[in-house]
Each structure stands twice: as structure tokens, then as C-alpha cells.
Design a protein around this nucleic acid. Structure first.
Length: 598
RNA sequence: UGCGGGGUAGAGCAGUGGUAGCUCGUCGGGCUCAUAACCCGGAGGCCGCAGGUUCGAAUCCUGCCCCCGCUACCA
């Protein structure tokens, strides 16, 4: 029976390029999962987008002396190109500065307010008369009121380690204008009253515990058990979504509050864009639908506690107040991927940027290494010698070589067609059966979001197939007993056909190539486009998926004897050992941001 | 300071009371259609540290150390 699956992926801040951490934490696992379910024939909606708002974007804009909007538009465009290049197959990758997202975020605010889930509170915050704005704690320094250390940060003293209240600092000053004296000023903000949802959240966690990762459950339960405090959902800034209330023109919705709504708003936008405006409800008002949020570990409480609370608070929205709005079914949060043993750092350029490495390596090689080292159970490490070893030793040598050795053998010795055989031996039938079992075995692992194990299972099958060849030796048989060579070559091509589908969610580009080498026509997956959409005279760009022509299916293949093959070529480029040192030299060195080209 | 996760051959991981395993790499041998796979064999671990329970501990208990996240604006 076909399932309905929503794949919601963390929204990247559009203040810098995507790096391998983004890919490892959320985007690649989401893509593999979505591709698998599409192959299974399940109804999949995969959405995400650029987070256009938030302090990180304003900070970057200040640094460069440009507007926040121009920063996010610049990186949004690069996100589209980069993700198209590495094949993250969103049905829609949009952003949060759309008319659609703004309208819905404001509707949600209004509904929560009407239902009594928000409250107003006066806060004391530091204000800069020079910059005419309230300063976030991290923008402030001053003398510590506990130990007297002169350069304490607004939130914490680096000398005595105590957490600080920024308004109590002695002689507080702005980091950007240290000579100016800051004043304390009162300001009003709305808070989301999370504690109202405590019991329902605990119940929600209980219900989902059996199929969640243990660390996600434990963390979330603890987060709730410690007591939920109200969280401010408005800010004194000018870049963001306006608060839909009279007299609140100077304030905006807090980014953490509105960005997660993107899962819903992008679904609604997708429905509208595709000319079926009600279709989003098949996921959001359907008790059978399963919503998966792919995120990094830093985001766990936002997705397992705060976002579900927001959803509980707006249940019935756009549905005539009839309840049943879907909550996340699973939040398979990944841990972090370090770089050569050290934590990612944008400021020190200790990072591996996707636009850069996609100029030098095949997308499937990058996808393979990252998927093989997914930080599913604990932090992992992107190491260039590891990349070199796994690509050459596993991807090229085991899978690539299996495909290459037998496709070129069949091409040369069987006149470019799938061999026509008389009968199959027990060994032949056994290896075909093994490859067919893979659909069940690998599929089950992917459904549990154990993607690293799933990929390892594919590779183990490729090893078995290589072992089979060593026993059957078609290169010897072709001389003494051509009929037997026809049996084993047919068998191995059929096994390759099966394994190719198993690898396809991980390696979609090379899977398409193998598909064509085997003589098939058509595309396994849909085609990704960058499209422009118009809303009330304002245009925005998005990444979309046209899956109409996709013919790939997650099922046993029946390769026809006599089917004409196409001339094969090596699937994967073998890496030179020099790349290890070359790539390491880029780490920590100044970086030029280059145009992303197709 | 709290809460959660992690620490097992050179690398990546599995292993919740009974002889410490898998993949890659490495060394030796076999084979050779191929971007050198596959087979056979070898080397390589005080399972973070210290104590305890037990006939027996990587596994259970206690204390400590290190890394990461959240608490608090770096995926």
C-alpha cells in the first residue's frame, strides 16, 4: 500500500555558502530518504528553503555594507545552483521572504494570539542611541558585575564563567561602537506560552518514542521535564516579518518562531504553484501521512517541542477549524560532521564549501563519502585521506569496477547486447536472489533512516557479486564453453541492474548512467529546475522537481536477454593521491567566492 | 554548574555478562575480464582513566578525564 511521506528539511541561513556540514546533517539524508520513497511509489513532498531573516544575515550585511535582502538573495541563488548540482531533489526549495510565507506566518501569530497562547511582557534591554536600536546580548561588552573583568560579553563572562544579565554590566558598550554609552530601555514583546502544552507534548513524545532515535527522545523529554518557559517571539529589529498589530511597526517576528513554519508554508506554496491549491492538506490534514524533519542536533528542541507546540496551537488552521493538523512523525536528527578533526568555523574558513568541491569532484563521489560517514550516532569527521580512500577503495574499486568490468566485457564479447542464455545454474540463481533480497534489506534500513547501514549493505552486495564472478569466471568460459559464459554474464548484468536501483537513492547520477548503459531509456528520477514565481508583482526563484517522466521503481528487475546495450565508460573518476594535501591546504586559507557554474 | 550524546586495531564502525568482531588500509601468497576485483593467510587493541560487583566486565556500579550539542543568536 502506498504511503504519504513529507520530507521537511532544515532551512539554511542565507548568509554564506553551503558546506559539507549542511549536507551531512540534513540535506543528503533527506534526499536519499525522499528518492527511496519516490521509487517505492509513495507520495512524497519534500520542501525547504532559505531562511532569509535572522541576525546572522544582518551581521553579514553590516560587515559588507549592503542590505540584508541583497545578502540573502545572493546566497539563495547560490543555494539553488549548488543543490541542483549535487541533486537534492526538493519538490520545492523556496525562501521565507515570500508573500506566501509572510501572510501565513502572520496568520499563525494572529491565531495563537486569539486563542490565548501568547502573552505580552515588558523587558529591559540595552539600547544604542547612536544606532537607534536595541542590541542583542552578543553585540555588547562591559565590566563584569561579579568579578570585575573589564571585557565580559553580554551573555557570559569569559573570566569567571558566570552567566550574565547584560543590563547589569558596568559601563556596557557596543562592540561596533565602543565609545558610545549604552542605556537600558524598556521594550514590550510577545511570548509563546509553551507551558500550556506541557502535558500534550509529553504525550506526543510517549507516542513517538518507539520509532525515534534514543538521543532525540531523551533530549526532548528532558527539555520538557525541566519546565517550559515562555519564549519571546518578537524582536526589536527591522529585518524580518512585520508583527501584524497596530503600533508594532518597529518590531518583527523572531526568526526561530517563523522559520520552522516554512515546512507548512512551503507545502502550501508548492500546492499553489502546481495548480492544486488544496493538495497540501493530503500531508497536513491526513492522519496517515508521515512527516519527517531532517535536521542537525542543534535544532532538536525546536522540532520536537516548540514546533509541535506551535502546531497544536493552530490546529484547524485553513481547515474551517476542524482539527487534525499533522505533527512531525519522526525527527531523525544527525550529529555534526567535523572537518579534519576540528569543528567547522566560518570565520577561520575551516570549512569545505560545496560550490568549491563540486568544481573538482563528481557529485556522486561527494555523496558517497558523506553518506558513508553520516554522523547518525555521533559526530563524524570529513577527512581528505578518508575521502580518497573510500572513493578509490570502495566506490571506484568495488561498485564502479564491478559495473565497468562486466559491461565492457558484455559489450566486447557479446556484440553489445545482453547475452541470450539457455538456462541458469544454481550459483546464478543464488546471486540473482541475493540481489533481489536487497530491495527488502536495504529498503528496511532506509525506512528506519539508518542510511549509513543501508549504503554499507549495498556495498556488501556489490562485494558478493564480485565474489560470484571469481567463481564463475566468464573470461575463461568464453573460450571453452561460450554458453556458460552467456549464463554468467547475463546473471551478473541482471544483478548489476538490481544493485543499481539499490544504489540509486545514494548515487542518482551514476545510477542513471548505468541504467542507460544497460540499454534502458528514460529517466530514473525527475528533473530539477530553477523557476521564477510571481506573487503580487514580486518574483522569487525556487528549485522545483518535475517528476512526471520518472520511471525508476524500487523492485526486482527483469533484464531482457538480447536487449541492446550502450557503449560503457568508467563510472567514477579515480582520485590522485595528491588531492589530499591540495585540499588540506585550502582549509583555513582565505577563500575567494567564485561563481557557481553548471 | 546543570541536561543529553560520544570516547573499541592506522581510519570508519558493530558489539549490554562468557574465547574482541566487520569494512577500508597495511604485509605475504594465489588469480587476472577490469579503474584489480575476488580468494587464502599474517601483523596491528591494557575496549578514555581509576576503583568496585562477579567464577567471569568493552558490557553492570561509583568516581574522574576528554570531545560535541543544548541551556545562552555558529549546521
Amino acid at each position: 500500500m502506498s504511503k504519504t511521506i513529507h520530507v521537511s528539511v532544515a532551512w539554511p541561513y542565507a548568509n554564506g555558502d553551503l558546506h559539507v556540514g549542511h549536507l551531512a546533517g540534513a540535506y543528503l539524508p533527506a534526499d536519499i530518504f525522499a528518492r527511496y520513497h519516490r521509487l517505492k511509489g509513495n507520495r512524497v513532498l519534500m520542501v525547504s528553503g532559505s531562511d532569509s531573516h535572522g541576525t546572522p544575515i544582518s551581521v553579514e550585511a553590516d560587515k559588507r555594507g549592503v542590505t540584508a535582502r541583497s545578502i540573502f538573495e545572493h546566497y539563495h541563488h547560490r543555494f539553488l545552483l549548488t543543490q541542483q548540482k549535487i541533486g537534492i531533489s526538493y519538490d520545492l526549495f523556496t525562501h521565507t521572504d515570500t508573500v506566501n510565507h509572510t501572510r501565513i506566518a502572520q496568520d499563525i501569530f494572529t491565531l495563537l494570539l486569539e486563542r490565548g497562547f501568547l502573552y505580552k511582557e515588558t523587558q529591559q534591554l540595552l539600547y544604542s542611541q547612536y544606532e537607534k536600536r536595541f542590541l542583542p546580548d552578543r553585540y555588547v561588552e562591559g565590566e563584569c558585575y561579579i568579578c570585575g573583568y573589564p571585557d565580559a560579553r553580554g551573555d557570559q563572562c569569559d573570566n569567571c564563567g558566570n552567566l550574565l544579565d547584560a543590563t547589569r554590566l558596568i559601563n556596557p558598550r557596543s562592540k561596533s561602537h565602543p565609545d558610545e554609552r549604552l542605556i537600558v530601555r524598556e521594550t514590550e514583546h510577545y511570548f509563546l506560552d509553551l507551558s500550556i502544552f506541557t502535558d500534550r507534548l509529553l504525550h506526543y513524545l510517549d507516542v513517538h518514542e518507539p520509532h525515534w532515535r534514543p538521543n532525540v527522545v531523551r533530549f526532548s523529554r528532558n527539555f520538557v521535564a525541566e519546565g517550559l518557559r515562555g519564549r519571546p517571539i518578537t524582536r526589536d529589529i527591522d529585518w524580518g516579518i512585520p508583527v501584524p498589530l497596530e503600533g508594532w511597526d518597529d518590531k518583527r517576528l523572531y526568526v526561530w518562531f517563523e522559520a520552522v513554519m516554512g515546512y507548512l508554508t512551503a507545502s502550501i506554496e508548492w500546492a499553489k504553484n502546481t495548480g492544486q491549491p488544496e493538495a497540501w492538506m493530503d500531508w497536513w490534514y491526513n492522519p496517515e501521512a508521515e512527516i519527517y524533519n531532517f535536521i542537525g542536533k542543534d535544532n532538536i528542541p525546536f522540532h520536537t517541542v516548540i514546533w509541535p507546540a506551535e502546531l497544536m496551537g493552530i490546529d484547524g488552521i485553513y481547515n474551517g477549524n476542524s482539527p487534525g493538523l499533522s505533527l512531525p512523525y519522526d525527527v531523525p536528527a544527525n550529529e555534526f560532521m567535523n572537518i579534519e578533526g576540528r569543528q567547522f568555523s566560518k570565520s577561520r574558513n575551516w570549512a569545505i564549501w560545496l560550490p568549491d568541491i563540486l568544481e573538482r569532484y563528481q557529485p556522486d563521489a561527494v555523496r558517497y563519502y558523506i553518506a558513508a560517514t553520516f554522523p547518525e550516532t555521533h559526530d563524524s569527521d570529513f577527512a581528505w585521506d578518508g575521502f580518497f580512500n573510500r572513493v578509490n577503495g570502495e566506490l571506484v574499486a568495488t561498485w564502479g569496477n564491478l559495473v565497468n568490468r562486466m559491461l565492457s566485457f558484455a559489450w566486447k564479447r557479446f556484440d553489445g547486447v545482453v547475452p541470450v542464455y539457455d538456462t541458469l545454474t544454481e550459483a546464478d540463481k543464488a546471486i540473482i536472489a541475493r540481489s533481489e533480497e536487497g530491495f527488502e534489506e536495504v529498503g528496511a534500513l532506509i525506512e528506519q533512516v539508518r542510511l549509513r547501514d543501508a549504503l554499507a549493505a549495498c556495498m556488501a552486495l556489490a562485494r558478493e557479486a564480485n565474489g560470484y564472478l571469481d567463481v564463475r569466471k566468464p573470461w575463461s568460459a568464453i573460450k571453452e564453453d561460450p554458453a556458460d559464459a552467456a549464463r554468467s554474464v547475463y546473471t551478473i548484468l541482471r544483478v548489476i541492474d538490481n544493485l543499481n536501483l539499490l544504489f540509486a537513492p545514494f548515487l542518482p547520477f551514476s545510477a542513471q548512467q548505468v541504467h542507460e548503459y544497460l540499454g534502458y531509456d528514460g529517466a530514473l528520477f525527475g528533473v530539477q529546475h530553477i523557476e521564477s514565481f510571481d506573487e503580487d508583482g514580486r518574483a522569487h526563484e525556487a528549485l522545483t522537481l518535475d517528476a512526471a517522466g520518472a520511471i525508476g521503481r524500487w523492485e526486482k528487475r527483469k533484464l531482457h536477454p538480447g536487449q541492446p546495450l550502450r557503449e560503457p565508460a568508467a563510472l567514477f573518476a579515480k582520485l590522485e593521491p595528491e588531492i589530499v594535501e591540495q585540499e588540506r591546504a585550502y582549509l583555513g586559507a582565505p577563500r575567494d567566492e567564485r561563481e557557481v557554474v553548471e
